[in-house]
Simulated assay, not measured.
Amino acid sequence: MEGHPSYQELSGIAQKYPQTAGSLFQTYNDLKLAQQWEDLEVLDVPACARGAFKGRRPKTDNTLYVVPCSLAESLSIEWFHQAFSDLGRPPHIYLAICAEDSNIVYYKLSPGIIKPPV
């Protein structure tokens, strides 16, 4: 991982939270290289002991937040509350669940109960 060109952008957070460095690296490369997000920033989410991302999908103005995690992790409601709080209470965040085979599934999370669009 250290030899990859994107590691320099992630090194500070990856060294601070080494247990989540794999999912951070995998999510960053998916957003930056595959999905080509713009203005991608690495954020510190200390209450969740990991990094996260802030950026925009191509040709959009909406700022989105992505919090990576591993498929093997156990997360709690309190963990989600802390993530929303550390990120400044955005209307929603995306949870990037990374598997060992490099698959990533993104779940859109909103605080509280939200009626799905019809």
Rank of each mutant, 00 (worst) to 15 (best):
I77C: 09
G22E: 09
Q19S: 12
I13S: 14
S110Y: 15
H4P: 04
A83Q: 02
K32D: 13
G3V: 08
A52E: 00
Y65M: 01
A96W: 00
G22Q: 08
N29S: 08
S85K: 10
I13P: 04
G22M: 04
L43T: 01
I113W: 10
P5H: 14
L43C: 12
C98W: 01
L24K: 02
P58C: 05
A52Q: 01
Y106L: 14
C69G: 13
H4F: 13
F84S: 03
S6I: 05
D30C: 06
A34Q: 15
R50N: 00
F25Q: 03
L71S: 15
G55C: 07
R57V: 06
A47S: 15
P58K: 08
A34F: 12
P111K: 07
Q82S: 12
T60Q: 11
A99M: 05
K54H: 02
L87D: 03
S110C: 14
G12Y: 05
A52H: 02
F80Y: 11
T60W: 09
F25L: 04
D30R: 09
V42R: 12
G112I: 12
L10Y: 03
G22I: 03
E73H: 15
I113G: 12
K32Q: 13
Q19Y: 06
W79M: 10
E2T: 15
C48A: 14
L75T: 11
P90C: 06
G12T: 14
E9D: 15
V118K: 14
L43G: 00
G22H: 08
D44G: 01
H92W: 11
Q36F: 03
K32C: 08
G51E: 00
W37I: 11
M1Y: 13
D44Q: 01
Q36I: 05
S74G: 11
R50M: 00
Q8N: 11
G112W: 09
Q26G: 07
I93P: 05
A34E: 13
H4N: 15
D61H: 07
C69R: 04
S70V: 01
S74V: 07
D39Q: 15
R57Y: 11
A83R: 00
Q35P: 06
L95Y: 04
R56A: 07
E41H: 07
T63G: 02
L95V: 12
D101Y: 03
S11A: 12
P90L: 07
P68D: 00
E100L: 09
I114G: 08
L31C: 08
P46T: 00
Q19A: 13
K59P: 02
Q35T: 05
P46D: 00
E73R: 09
C98Q: 03
I97S: 07
I104C: 07
P111M: 08
P58I: 06
I97Y: 00
E78W: 04
N62L: 11
F53P: 06
L24D: 00
A47Q: 14
I113K: 14
G88W: 02
M1C: 13
L24G: 07
L43V: 01
Q19L: 08
I93T: 04
L40K: 04
G88S: 05
T60S: 15
A72H: 13
Q26N: 12
H81G: 12
L43S: 01
F53N: 04
N29L: 06
P68H: 00
L109T: 10
T63L: 10
